[in-house]
Amino acid sequence: MYKDKIVLITGSSRGIGSETANYFLKNNAVVIGLSKGVPAIGNVNYHHFSVDLAKPEEIIKTFKNIAKHFKKIDIVINNAAVLTSQYSMIMPLKNAVDMVNVDLLAVFLVSRESVKLMRKNQYGRIINISSMAVSLEPAGDSLYAACKAGINTLANVMAKEFASFNITCNTLAITAYETDMLKQHSPEAQIKIKEIIKKLPIARMAEKDDILNVIDFFASKRSGYITAQTVYLGGVN
């Protein structure tokens, strides 16, 4: 399905990023994975670039390196995110800065640098992975929700800027998904998440295929007329 397509995925070492990378590989794409640390996927079509997405200069440098190896990028999945769930008044400054850098600024930079390669080919799909937190605005997630709201808006504005290059920009806002990031939460936070899930119209966590289904839709060649859209999973709106 994705033969000859080059897909760049941030946060490819674990969770949704890893699942998405494996999905595209299984469907014959070449995958460029960006994440901190060593590659977690062993596949000849997987190319890993180790980068700390909290450091903007590293992102720019990494893309110079990517451009030396790849003449195009077709699809970008801005998946990487960090989350510290904490009341604003006691949120450590470092965690706050990391969230803004990884969850918002890195999405901007990765999209921007990718478009420089996409536009030569006059084709591209940018998909931002956002969160139900934008709509539900849970206490403790002020900055996380704000950053995720930011990437929704980022996609909408970039959709206008890049439309003439046949590049679409869309957002998938997911509900909770069983990942390492979720497991890092305190027991209290995990109870809070379960309470939120119980109140969703479809009262369960997201499953891998719920996410891949929408990614497929946005990534499809047929979706060239779909841009600046946000899809929430599980009945959140």
Partner: peptide, 17 residues
């Protein structure tokens, strides 16, 4: 303005790469 942006990006890219 978008065409100018393209020229700028192309030039920065050529000089760098």
């Amino acid at each position: 303005s978008l065409s100018l942006v393209s020229i700028i990006v192309d030039l920065e890219g050529v000089f760098s790469s």
